[in-house]
Amino acid sequence: MSETPLIGDFSPAPDAGLSGARIGVITFPGTLDDADAARAVRLAGGTAVSLWHGDHDLQGVDAVILPGGFSYGDYLRAGAISRFAPVMEQVVDGAKGGLPVLGICNGFQVLTEAHLLPGSMIKNNHLHFVCRDQKLRVENNSTAWTAEYAAGSEIVVPLKNQDGQYVADEKTLDELEGEGRVVFRYVDVNPNGSRRDIAGITNAAGNVVGLMPHPEHAVEAGYGPDSSAFGPVGVRGGTDGLGMFTSVLKKIVGAN
């Protein structure tokens, strides 16, 4: 049988220069957006490496993405079971050593359950799953994943979740604000009741970032949102999320 790509596994030719950077994308049971995250890495010019939740092995990657989905069905709490996956030991160790780690949606939930990021996500305040094109403001452009954006700039990326309401105690929220660790904030509409409109945060070192919206769904013209915060685009032409992936690739290549 021929080795044909399943949908989403196709790799376009990566941009020269960044292809040396290898970014791991972890698949947990119930992960859904792993093919999308890998595609985003490739479209940004990097090399995507599939990582399996059951392996104690990061295969020497330069950064790690925990993609969206419903790992273990989100049945206990979102991310609560995945944080105990074997691969998470290496992710936690790596993160503490400065490895760039990005958690998107369910991946963000795993990072909070693993205590790499503070706070937690509860059910949306309106109690429904919501899928919409969401405007965000980049509050912090000094993290490993946001350096390509201007501070204060706005982007439009899809948001889709059931348990997306970010909560933390007032002290933690004040700390996050005081230390500039709020990375993304919802603009115009707070789609889930998140405290202080927080959409994404970082750790103190700036290498670990988690956010609820999905930058990996806004990286390819024709398959993204209908709009962009940077100007008019074609139908489903928004690619505002690509900057997150080029940010980390340039950082990795620059450091080498």
């Binding site: 989403g8 859904l32 999308d36 799953f129 889709k160 398959y223 139908v235 489903r236």
Partner: peptide
């Protein structure tokens, strides 16, 4: 109704 469904996952939705 349709905003309660994911239309983005897998990255191949053109319409």
């Amino acid at each position: 109704i349709t905003n309660q469904y994911d239309r983005y996952v897998r990255g191949n939705t053109a319409l």
